[in-house]
Amino acid sequence: MNIFRLAGDMTHLLSIIVLLLKMNATRSCRGVSLKTQELYAVVFVCRYLDLFTNFISLYNTVMKLIFLASTFTIIYWMRFHKVIRVTYDREQDTFRYQFLVLPCLVLAMVLNSEFTVMEVLWTFSIYLEAVAILPQLVLLQRTNNIDNLTGNYVFLLGSYRALYILNWIYRFMTEPNYRQYLVWISGIVQTIVYIDFFYYYIKSWRNNEKLSLPA
Protein backbone atom coordinates (compact mmCIF):
# COMPACT_ATOMS: atom_id res chain seq x y z
CA MET A 1 0.00 0.00 0.00
CA ASN A 2 1.43 3.33 -1.04
CA ILE A 3 0.50 6.85 0.00
CA PHE A 4 -1.51 7.55 -3.19
CA ARG A 5 -3.59 4.43 -2.75
CA LEU A 6 -4.28 5.24 0.92
CA ALA A 7 -5.10 8.87 0.08
CA GLY A 8 -7.40 7.64 -2.71
CA ASP A 9 -9.26 5.26 -0.44
CA MET A 10 -9.59 7.90 2.27
CA THR A 11 -10.91 10.44 -0.26
CA HIS A 12 -13.42 7.85 -1.46
CA LEU A 13 -14.48 7.18 2.12
CA LEU A 14 -14.71 10.90 2.83
CA SER A 15 -16.92 11.47 -0.21
CA ILE A 16 -19.43 8.94 1.11
CA ILE A 17 -19.26 10.37 4.64
CA VAL A 18 -19.92 13.87 3.24
CA LEU A 19 -22.99 12.54 1.46
CA LEU A 20 -24.29 10.67 4.51
CA LEU A 21 -23.75 13.68 6.80
CA LYS A 22 -25.39 16.03 4.33
CA MET A 23 -28.45 13.85 4.02
CA ASN A 24 -28.66 13.26 7.73
CA ALA A 25 -28.18 16.92 8.70
CA THR A 26 -30.43 18.52 6.10
CA ARG A 27 -32.94 15.65 5.90
CA SER A 28 -32.75 16.16 2.17
CA CYS A 29 -31.27 14.35 -0.80
CA ARG A 30 -31.93 17.11 -3.30
CA GLY A 31 -29.46 16.92 -6.17
CA VAL A 32 -28.37 13.37 -5.31
CA SER A 33 -28.89 10.71 -7.97
CA LEU A 34 -30.41 7.51 -6.67
CA LYS A 35 -29.49 5.86 -9.97
CA THR A 36 -25.79 6.53 -9.40
CA GLN A 37 -26.03 5.23 -5.83
CA GLU A 38 -27.77 2.05 -6.99
CA LEU A 39 -25.19 1.55 -9.72
CA TYR A 40 -22.47 1.86 -7.07
CA ALA A 41 -24.29 -0.73 -4.98
CA VAL A 42 -24.19 -3.10 -7.98
CA VAL A 43 -20.50 -2.27 -8.48
CA PHE A 44 -19.61 -3.03 -4.87
CA VAL A 45 -21.68 -6.23 -4.67
CA CYS A 46 -20.17 -7.63 -7.88
CA ARG A 47 -16.62 -6.62 -7.01
CA TYR A 48 -16.61 -7.61 -3.37
CA LEU A 49 -17.88 -11.18 -3.89
CA ASP A 50 -14.31 -12.16 -3.02
CA LEU A 51 -15.13 -11.26 0.59
CA PHE A 52 -16.38 -14.85 0.73
CA THR A 53 -13.50 -16.50 -1.08
CA ASN A 54 -10.32 -14.55 -0.51
CA PHE A 55 -8.91 -12.74 2.50
CA ILE A 56 -6.51 -9.96 1.53
CA SER A 57 -6.12 -7.92 4.71
CA LEU A 58 -8.17 -6.61 7.59
CA TYR A 59 -7.99 -3.14 6.04
CA ASN A 60 -9.32 -4.49 2.76
CA THR A 61 -12.20 -6.39 4.37
CA VAL A 62 -13.24 -3.53 6.65
CA MET A 63 -13.19 -0.97 3.82
CA LYS A 64 -15.27 -3.23 1.60
CA LEU A 65 -17.85 -3.67 4.33
CA ILE A 66 -17.96 0.09 4.98
CA PHE A 67 -18.48 0.86 1.28
CA LEU A 68 -21.27 -1.70 1.04
CA ALA A 69 -23.01 -0.60 4.25
CA SER A 70 -22.77 3.14 3.53
CA THR A 71 -24.04 2.82 -0.04
CA PHE A 72 -26.98 0.70 1.04
CA THR A 73 -27.73 3.20 3.82
CA ILE A 74 -27.87 6.04 1.28
CA ILE A 75 -30.18 4.01 -0.97
CA TYR A 76 -32.38 3.06 1.97
CA TRP A 77 -32.73 6.69 3.06
CA MET A 78 -33.50 7.89 -0.46
CA ARG A 79 -36.12 5.21 -1.01
CA PHE A 80 -37.70 4.73 2.41
CA HIS A 81 -36.76 7.47 4.90
CA LYS A 82 -39.96 9.28 5.87
CA VAL A 83 -38.56 12.77 5.33
CA ILE A 84 -35.62 12.29 2.98
CA ARG A 85 -37.42 10.30 0.28
CA VAL A 86 -39.84 13.18 -0.31
CA THR A 87 -36.92 15.42 -1.36
CA TYR A 88 -35.66 13.05 -4.07
CA ASP A 89 -35.70 14.63 -7.56
CA ARG A 90 -37.41 11.67 -9.18
CA GLU A 91 -38.50 13.54 -12.31
CA GLN A 92 -35.00 14.87 -12.97
CA ASP A 93 -33.09 11.67 -12.25
CA THR A 94 -34.11 9.98 -15.47
CA PHE A 95 -30.94 8.32 -16.74
CA ARG A 96 -31.70 4.77 -17.82
CA TYR A 97 -29.81 2.00 -16.08
CA GLN A 98 -29.82 -0.29 -19.09
CA PHE A 99 -27.78 2.16 -21.18
CA LEU A 100 -24.91 1.67 -18.77
CA VAL A 101 -25.45 -1.82 -17.36
CA LEU A 102 -25.97 -3.73 -20.62
CA PRO A 103 -22.92 -2.44 -22.54
CA CYS A 104 -20.72 -3.00 -19.46
CA LEU A 105 -22.05 -6.55 -19.07
CA VAL A 106 -21.44 -7.38 -22.73
CA LEU A 107 -17.98 -5.83 -22.59
CA ALA A 108 -17.14 -7.80 -19.44
CA MET A 109 -18.19 -11.06 -21.14
CA VAL A 110 -15.98 -10.31 -24.14
CA LEU A 111 -13.05 -8.52 -22.54
CA ASN A 112 -11.87 -10.23 -19.36
CA SER A 113 -8.85 -12.13 -18.17
CA GLU A 114 -10.74 -15.35 -17.45
CA PHE A 115 -14.24 -16.48 -18.41
CA THR A 116 -15.57 -17.45 -14.99
CA VAL A 117 -18.58 -16.07 -13.12
CA MET A 118 -16.42 -14.36 -10.49
CA GLU A 119 -14.01 -12.87 -12.98
CA VAL A 120 -16.70 -11.63 -15.38
CA LEU A 121 -18.65 -10.01 -12.52
CA TRP A 122 -15.46 -8.43 -11.19
CA THR A 123 -14.60 -7.06 -14.65
CA PHE A 124 -18.21 -5.88 -15.07
CA SER A 125 -17.86 -3.94 -11.80
CA ILE A 126 -14.70 -2.26 -13.09
CA TYR A 127 -16.44 -1.14 -16.31
CA LEU A 128 -19.64 -0.10 -14.56
CA GLU A 129 -17.80 1.98 -11.96
CA ALA A 130 -16.23 3.97 -14.78
CA VAL A 131 -19.63 5.25 -15.92
CA ALA A 132 -21.76 5.01 -12.76
CA ILE A 133 -21.31 8.72 -12.01
CA LEU A 134 -23.01 9.77 -15.27
CA PRO A 135 -26.59 9.90 -13.88
CA GLN A 136 -25.26 12.07 -11.04
CA LEU A 137 -23.52 14.44 -13.44
CA VAL A 138 -26.64 14.71 -15.60
CA LEU A 139 -28.72 15.46 -12.51
CA LEU A 140 -26.24 18.13 -11.37
CA GLN A 141 -26.46 19.74 -14.76
CA ARG A 142 -30.23 19.95 -14.39
CA THR A 143 -30.06 21.35 -10.85
CA ASN A 144 -29.84 25.13 -10.93
CA ASN A 145 -28.36 25.70 -7.53
CA ILE A 146 -25.97 22.89 -6.73
CA ASP A 147 -25.43 22.99 -3.00
CA ASN A 148 -21.88 22.90 -1.74
CA LEU A 149 -22.05 19.45 -0.25
CA THR A 150 -23.29 17.75 -3.39
CA GLY A 151 -20.58 19.53 -5.37
CA ASN A 152 -17.99 18.48 -2.81
CA TYR A 153 -19.20 14.89 -2.95
CA VAL A 154 -18.61 14.69 -6.70
CA PHE A 155 -15.31 16.56 -6.39
CA LEU A 156 -14.05 14.10 -3.75
CA LEU A 157 -15.14 11.14 -5.89
CA GLY A 158 -13.22 12.55 -8.85
CA SER A 159 -10.17 13.20 -6.67
CA TYR A 160 -10.23 9.60 -5.48
CA ARG A 161 -10.05 8.45 -9.10
CA ALA A 162 -7.17 10.81 -9.87
CA LEU A 163 -5.26 9.52 -6.82
CA TYR A 164 -5.79 5.94 -8.00
CA ILE A 165 -4.03 6.80 -11.25
CA LEU A 166 -1.05 8.11 -9.27
CA ASN A 167 -1.19 4.87 -7.25
CA TRP A 168 -0.98 2.81 -10.45
CA ILE A 169 1.95 4.84 -11.76
CA TYR A 170 3.73 4.37 -8.43
CA ARG A 171 3.02 0.62 -8.41
CA PHE A 172 4.11 0.28 -12.02
CA MET A 173 7.45 1.84 -11.16
CA THR A 174 8.04 -0.08 -7.91
CA GLU A 175 6.46 -3.52 -8.48
CA PRO A 176 8.23 -5.59 -11.15
CA ASN A 177 5.26 -7.61 -12.49
CA TYR A 178 2.46 -5.20 -11.82
CA ARG A 179 0.17 -4.82 -14.86
CA GLN A 180 -3.60 -4.52 -15.04
CA TYR A 181 -4.57 -3.05 -18.38
CA LEU A 182 -8.36 -3.39 -18.09
CA VAL A 183 -8.36 -1.62 -14.74
CA TRP A 184 -6.05 1.12 -15.97
CA ILE A 185 -8.03 1.90 -19.11
CA SER A 186 -11.36 1.90 -17.25
CA GLY A 187 -9.84 4.07 -14.53
CA ILE A 188 -8.56 6.59 -17.04
CA VAL A 189 -11.97 6.70 -18.75
CA GLN A 190 -13.59 7.18 -15.35
CA THR A 191 -11.30 10.08 -14.52
CA ILE A 192 -11.89 11.75 -17.90
CA VAL A 193 -15.62 11.71 -17.16
CA TYR A 194 -14.93 14.13 -14.28
CA ILE A 195 -12.73 16.62 -16.13
CA ASP A 196 -15.58 18.84 -17.29
CA PHE A 197 -17.03 18.92 -13.77
CA PHE A 198 -13.62 19.72 -12.28
CA TYR A 199 -13.26 22.65 -14.62
CA TYR A 200 -16.51 24.27 -13.46
CA TYR A 201 -15.98 23.29 -9.82
CA ILE A 202 -12.58 25.00 -9.65
CA LYS A 203 -13.83 27.98 -11.65
CA SER A 204 -16.74 28.56 -9.27
CA TRP A 205 -14.44 28.11 -6.29
CA ARG A 206 -11.92 30.66 -7.59
CA ASN A 207 -14.62 33.18 -8.43
CA ASN A 208 -16.38 32.54 -5.12
CA GLU A 209 -19.60 31.74 -6.94
CA LYS A 210 -22.16 29.03 -6.50
CA LEU A 211 -21.46 26.04 -8.67
CA SER A 212 -23.65 25.56 -11.71
CA LEU A 213 -22.99 23.46 -14.77
CA PRO A 214 -23.93 24.76 -18.21
CA ALA A 215 -26.54 22.64 -19.97
Binding site: D9, D50, N54, I56, N60, F67, W122, N177, Q180, V183
Partner: peptide, 10 residues
Protein backbone atom coordinates in the same frame (compact mmCIF):
# COMPACT_ATOMS: atom_id res chain seq x y z
CA UNK B 1 -0.68 -15.23 -4.99
CA UNK B 2 -0.36 -13.01 -8.05
CA UNK B 3 -4.12 -13.15 -8.54
CA UNK B 4 -4.70 -11.90 -4.99
CA UNK B 5 -2.21 -9.09 -5.45
CA UNK B 6 -4.01 -7.95 -8.56
CA UNK B 7 -7.30 -7.61 -6.70
CA UNK B 8 -6.13 -5.88 -3.55
CA UNK B 9 -7.60 -2.57 -4.70
CA UNK B 10 -11.03 -1.36 -3.71
Amino acid sequence: KEEAEEKDEL
